[in-house]
Design a binder for these strands. Sequence first.
DNA 1: TAAAGTAGTTTATTTTATAAACCAAATTTT
DNA 2: AAAATTTGGTTTATAAAATAAACTACTTTA
Lengths: 96, 96
Amino acid sequence: MFKELNPLLHSELRLAVMSVLLSVESADFVFLREQTGATAGNLSVQIDKLQQAGYITVEKGFQGKKPRTTCAITEQGISAFEEYVKALRSYIGKGL
Amino acid sequence: MFKELNPLLHSELRLAVMSVLLSVESADFVFLREQTGATAGNLSVQIDKLQQAGYITVEKGFQGKKPRTTCAITEQGISAFEEYVKALRSYIGKGL
DNA sequence: TAAAGTAGTTTATTTTATAAACCAAATTTT
DNA sequence: AAAATTTGGTTTATAAAATAAACTACTTTA
């Protein structure tokens, strides 16, 4: 009847991060914070979880003298997202 | 950019309960447990939260000698669900 | 050089979800 | 007919998440 909702993606902030990354090739920490409206602390934690899961890659480097963290979605992340959307359909119907 | 996801509905089990109730006029506890696959304890708690929020009505009575809890979605519940679905769209695109 | 800002991380607190234990009545088994 | 099982739940305890607050380390500006 109802498909399981991947708990890693069923989180407002992680879903927002994935959504941004799907449309953007790569995004840095500050951009993600702005787009999602999240606090830095929360974002830091959730980025970490997405990386652990292999859904995004995270590169920490420097831009001049400032630290810069850049994220990008992986193939695995894309298909997990697609699966999640499919599962959602079983809850909310095609009617949207 | 991203609309807020009503935290009361952004829960797998509560969403499933709402989804069932949307399509069914009214449903008893056992039916909901079967449809959602949830444990009775979890279902009991989540039904309570949906009722507190005014999203469903809960009537406890007897059918013969057995207790029988019947739930139905409210107008408020329907529009909250619709709002939630709209908000979801901001995360997953029109492709839902 | 002191204050404020940037880019994060770590830790602590609160909130949720889930499971486990429990209760009361009814039904079935021996 | 007593004992065990099932039904229909609720309550309580534990695990997992989300969020906020505090902190680190470095940089820029006044």
